[in-house]
Design a protein around this nucleic acid. Sequence first.
DNA 1: TTAGTTAAGATTTTT
DNA 2: TCTTAACTAA
Length: 729
Amino acid sequence: MDMNLEFISGLNEPQKSAVLHTEGPLLILAGAGSGKTRVITHRIAHLIINKNIYPYKICALTFTNKAAKEMQERVIKLLSNSGNLVMIKTFHSLCLYILRKYPEKINLHSGFTVYDTSLSESLLKEIIKDLSLDNKAFKPKNISSVIQNSKDKMILPEEFLDELPKDSFYKSIGKIYTLYEERKMERNALDFGDLILKTVILLKEYPEIKNYYNNLWEYIMVDEYQDTNKCQYILTTLLAGEKKNICVVGDDDQSIYSWRGADIRNILDFEKDYKNTYIVKLEENYRSTQNIITAAGSLIKNNSDRKDKTLFTNKEIGKKITLTECPSEMDEARFVLNKIKDLYKFTGKYSKIAVFYRTNAQSRFFEEALRENNIPYKIYGGFRFYDRAEIKDMMAYLTILINPDDTGSLLRIINFPPRGLGDTSLEKLRLNAIENNVSVFEILKRGNTDLRKSAKLSIENFLSNYNDLSIMIKNNMNPSAIAKSLVVQMGIEDELKKNADPESLDRLENIEQFIESIQEYEDSTENPNLSEYLNMISLYTSEEDGVEITDYITLMTVHNSKGLEFDTVFLTGMEEGTFPHFMSLEEKMGVEEERRLCYVAITRAMQDLYISHCQYSRKYGEIQKREPSRFLSEIPENLFQTGSEISYRTPIRAPFAKEREIKEKTNFQANSINNSTFKVGSKVKHREYGIGKIVDISGVGDNKKAKIRFGYTEKNFLLVYTPLEIVEN
DNA sequence: TTAGTTAAGATTTTT
DNA sequence: TCTTAACTAA
């Protein structure tokens, strides 16, 4: 047989065998940095080039949009245009893609909304209220996670009530769950969990649909298989169908999402579930130095339940891992800062350096240190563009244009900008809707409500604007044009310009940026329309804004680091209680997952790994003595180097609170002394509000007040308490 | 309806 | 300690 194997000549033997094994179940145990994406993409290329499989017969599933995008790009690189035809999607987007075709089969109609967490939670909040449950015991967040977890486990409301303990608490949750499903349906909406669950139900209930997809996608590939939950597992088996040409890739040692329902048994038991599974182990690491790999290996072997495999590398031994003990978190930040400065002197680059921490709260110290020294940094996976309130408002507005029954979105924006429809009015409308068994939008349209005259008027006004915008949709106008006139017509622009404080202007700018992103979508699509756009971004959460700076330090939680790599990694806060986190200490499996998490962190580093821990750190504002993480003692001492950093072990200073006190005092004094230097007309910089101009000064001594104008608003400050920088006097 | 105050609660978060 | 949500006063 003529085969073009040239393109896989660069692969090692196990990689090749994985690429060439195309029929039947295949389990690829891919250690960290072992080139798994390479294997997946080459396997796809091999199927198409050598096995004459049509590109659209292959479906690859990932967890993140980022991974899907990267995989598609790499496939296109190998195959050029036909790479576009390979179906590469996230679990959720594939399911959405399927469900959009059969909305009526899952009792919805076209144009249904996908609820994000905040919309789900506000619906739950309503339900908790309507059921007159104690809102201290029933928190939307907690209930939401119980419900989502149940969905991940394929437990429907009825089963929930049957299976779970019959105490009143769980009974109530069962009631909430039932009602939640009903209301969501009425609103023509789905939540994230539904996307997978309803697809599973659809494929099970309609064999002809399942057959259709089984014939369409003959080859299924699943990335990060260790992270699949039960529901996703069932989905993959349904997609694999009778042919069972299913290739799963994963690493049990990197399973760090069990708390989100990921079931590590899915990968551990794959060979039991699929007879004649062919197993390939990718154990050669191409990323890190020997020292780093040895450290990671010695750590992870302390876990009990894992597939037997050992990572190795042919790279150089490399530098020793630097272990540094710091008196306080501030010292730790300073240590990292100084090291970063040193590294920058050598490399002239920040972009290959990352700082990891276990919990988000730890980032502050590093942010502070970097900001003070004007070193650019970005928090990866931090606050996302689409999480901003104003963007969510825009989304909600656009959503109700497509799906007016989506009461959740409607309630979100009905009083933004303020229309005199406060909590009481909204509650009336909502209850009215429930009574009449229609959506709130329908109630608005009927208009015979017992609201104040002014409220009625503003509703009428809202509806007339709504109609104008609807007409634009009917006329197939561009989504960006609709969004633009929405911002004006609905009074969003006026509202934000009216309170022209820096924050509002910022929000307006974000909205403009949002509209720009819609335009980008239009430019890259043949027949752009609003509903397709919303469909696309409903599952799109990452920060896709064209950031100006390209060279920056990356700060992130260890969870976020999975799948990434950096020349230099700072793994910080390696103390008992922080990492492993105290919440995980109760169960053995909890500590094992923390260990895997630590393994993930270590294996991100290519060259340099700096591990640090503090003698004292704060928890909820209380200073506590800390012991080094148990994980540190699981790594052979000879891999560490503490010598050159030992000088940094300054004696225990009054940790923290005192430092802050001193700092505040000096600030206070500085301002007292400098009080006289502020005068009307001075340009000053405020930490929060930015640059402003002093328009008035009143009072004497410590009572001296300054009225400062920022943009279009004025604010009063007591000078002694306000840290102000003089920009121009 | 809003602004201001107070009390509670505080891992991790691919979609 | 710091943030957020729930309460209270204007």
